[in-house]
Nucleic acid binder design. Structure first.
Length: 116
DNA sequence: CTTTTGACTACGG
DNA sequence: TCCGTAGCCAAAA
């Protein structure tokens, strides 16, 4: 597990979120081996300029867009990108996490993290 | 090197 | 139900 860094694992996990699904910051942190490091997932994305990374599929645990604005992205962009995947995000209610949340098996996560 | 600042969230009170 | 806070850790200052 600690062959790779937290950041590297976060990147691998986010790349594995299927189109049409989302994951919360906390979920990603948890899968990356640090359940309480949700905030850092946000920080990593904030400074990331990796165009192979589907960053828009990461939202907060309430199903709402958390981004306020970074060097590379805005909340409007995120809403648009999700819309292209048929995920509608309402300003006041967000989206239904129980419907769109990515629910990988433990085995799947192990495989993703191991493949470094 | 140390300190601060967050695209977070579970838990108390 | 509604805050305040602790924990987590990458970047920037």
């Amino acid at each position: 597990m600690s062959q790779s860094t937290f950041k590297e694992r976060v990147i691998l996990i986010i790349r594995s979120i299927p189109k049409g699904h989302v994951a919360s910051y906390g979920q990603v942190a948890s899968y990356a081996g640090s359940p309480r490091a949700a905030r850092q997932v946000g920080m990593i994305l904030r400074f990331s300029n990796d165009d192979t990374l589907p960053w828009w599929r990461v939202i907060n645990n309430e199903g709402r867009i958390s981004i306020k604005g970074s060097f590379y992205a805005t909340p409007q962009m995120q809403k648009e990108l999700l819309g292209k995947e048929k995920i509608a995000v309402s300003e006041e209610f967000g989206l239904h996490m129980e419907i769109y949340r990515w629910k990988p098996t433990l085995a799947a996560i192990k495989k993703i993290v191991r493949a470094k």
